[in-house]
Amino acid sequence: MSGYHPDDMTLMNYAAGSCTIPESLAVAMHLCFCHDCRQHVKNLNHLGGALLETIKPASTDDDAFESLMASLEPHAQSEIAQVKMEPTPSEKITQHFTNPLLRYLPTSLADLPWQRQTKEISKYDLTSLINVKGFQVALQKINAGAKVPKHTHKGFEYTVILSGGFSDELGVYHEGDFIARDASHKHSPTALQNEDCICLTVLNAPLKFTGWYRVLNPFMAWS
């Protein structure tokens, strides 16, 4: 169970489907870890269902149903038999919410072809997988105990910790935590001592390193 969650507004925008694709990835990733937020999204989906019931219906084309019927294929019997099968216990456990990136990563997190940024920080870029203009999306790996140079954000940054943890001026974060930062924050995350920290970062504008490290700005993107 994680300690830092998306706020109600973020969860609502997600349930309503009015957030961007990169934001939805960060929320979905957090949902993999967090029972409470899954429950809340479920409630917000119910709200969507209830609103659908109370919406003023629009008239549909007269022949729309028949033409739709003509395009549908009968359900195969085998398919039904499959559905009827009880899931095995292990399937039941993993079924809650699957890691949305699972299908798209070539290997396990540990074995990814990480791209080195500095001696202690590396990334695996996902920007093209998400492919939304103006957003940078990546997995980040900070070696145990390493510090990311102090930086601010031009836009906002969402971070979801997938393993390990880090701390910054505002708190200590662990697996599953969802951290939102905007332009008003200046921070320098430090990975916890005992293990490497891997997280998903979603950024809607490039980072700006401050202080001495500003020379890095043109060369290094934390995302």
Binding site: I21, H96, Y104, N131
Partner: peptide, 15 residues
């Protein structure tokens, strides 16, 4: 190849 909508907006289940 882009991430599928269905992966991002799954219907959460509790069993």
């Amino acid at each position: 190849v882009v991430i599928e909508t269905e992966e991002l907006w799954q219907i959460p289940t509790e069993d």
